[in-house]
Simulated assay, not measured.
Amino acid sequence: MGDLTADRFEWSDYDGVLFDLDGVITPTAEIHEHAWGELFSAYDYTAADYLEHIDGRPRYDGVRSFLASRGVELPEGDLDDAPGDGTVCALGNRKNELFNEILDRDGIAPYPGSQATLDLLGSAGIPAAIVSSSKNAVPVLDAAGLADRFDVVIDGVVAADLGLAGKPAPDGYLLGAARLGVDPSRTVVVEDASSGVAAGKAGSFAVTIGVDRGAGHDTLLAHGATFVVDDLADLLGSDHPSDDTREER
C-alpha cells in the first residue's frame, strides 16, 4: 500500500474503519481549541500551541506538554481535583468544564463530507469505530446525532479504565480494531493530528488517512499518513456527493 494515493482509494477494499472524532467527524477541535485558549490565556496561548502541544493528546498530557513549553512546573495533583489552576489535574478538569459549557451552549454538527462517508460505509456494511483521546466523545456523538453510527467507541474514559497509552502509541486503535473484529492489515485509520497518524503507522494499519484541518499536508505525511486530503468529501465518488444542505443543528 506504499504507493496508494487518494485517487486510487476505495473504502470497499477494507474490512473496517477507525475514526478519530475531533476534527475528523465533528469540528469539535474548534471547541477544544477555544477551551484550551481560555484555559491558558495568561500564557500567551496561540493556535500553533494547540497543534504542537495539545492536538490528539489525552487531556492531562496536553496540559503537561503546554506547560513544559512555557517552562512551568506544577504538581500533578489528583484526577478528582476541583477545576482550577493549582495542579496539572485541576487545569485539565477546568478545561473539560469549559469544553462542556461551550458544547451545551453552541451544539455541534458533523462535517458534511464525514456524514456522507458514514452513510456510504453504513450502506456498504463496513463497520466503523471512534478512537478518540477525548473523555467527551460520547456526549459529542450524542450532540451531533451520531451515537448510533459507530459499532465501537474507544475514548479517553476507556483508555483510563484500561491503562492504555495515548496517541502516538497505537494502543487505542489496536483495541478498536480488536473490538470491531477486524485485522489491522485490513483496516483504515482516519486522523487529523500528527500524533494520530503516527499511531496509525505504529499499529501497522493498512491505510492511515490524514485529514488536514490545519496540521499541514507535509506534517501529516511526515508523521505517517499514507496520503492526506482536505476533507473526507475528497474520497467520495460522484455517486456519493457530500450534502451541505442538512438541517442546522
Rank of each mutant, 00 (worst) to 15 (best):
D3Q: 14
D3V: 15
L4S: 01
A6P: 02
R8N: 14
E10Y: 08
S12F: 12
D13F: 10
D13K: 10
Y14S: 01
D20H: 06
D20L: 02
D20W: 02
V24R: 01
T26W: 01
P27V: 10
A29H: 13
A29E: 14
I31K: 00
H32M: 11
E33Q: 15
E38C: 14
L39Q: 12
F40H: 01
S41E: 13
Y43Q: 13
D44P: 13
T46Q: 08
A48Y: 11
D49G: 08
Y50K: 11
L51Q: 08
E52R: 13
E52W: 10
E52I: 10
G56K: 09
Y60C: 11
R64P: 10
R64F: 07
S65E: 13
S65N: 12
V72L: 05
V72S: 02
L74Y: 01
E76K: 07
L79W: 11
L79E: 09
L79A: 12
D80S: 07
P83D: 06
V88S: 09
C89R: 09
A90N: 06
L91S: 10
R94L: 14
L98R: 07
N100C: 13
I102Q: 04
L103W: 02
D104T: 12
D104I: 12
G107A: 06
I108P: 03
A116N: 03
A116F: 04
L118Q: 02
S123V: 15
S123A: 15
A124T: 11
A124V: 14
A128W: 01
V131C: 10
S132R: 05
N136E: 04
N136L: 06
G145P: 09
R149Y: 04
F150V: 04
D151K: 13
D151A: 15
V153A: 00
I154P: 03
G156K: 07
G156I: 08
G163Y: 07
L164V: 00
A165T: 14
K167P: 04
A169Y: 09
D171G: 06
D171F: 07
G172Q: 05
R179D: 11
G181H: 08
D183H: 03
D183S: 11
R186G: 10
R186H: 12
V189A: 08
V189D: 01
A193G: 08
A193T: 07
S194P: 15
S194F: 15
A198L: 09
K201S: 12
R213M: 04
T219L: 14
L220E: 00
F227A: 02
D231F: 11
G237W: 04
S242C: 12
R249L: 14
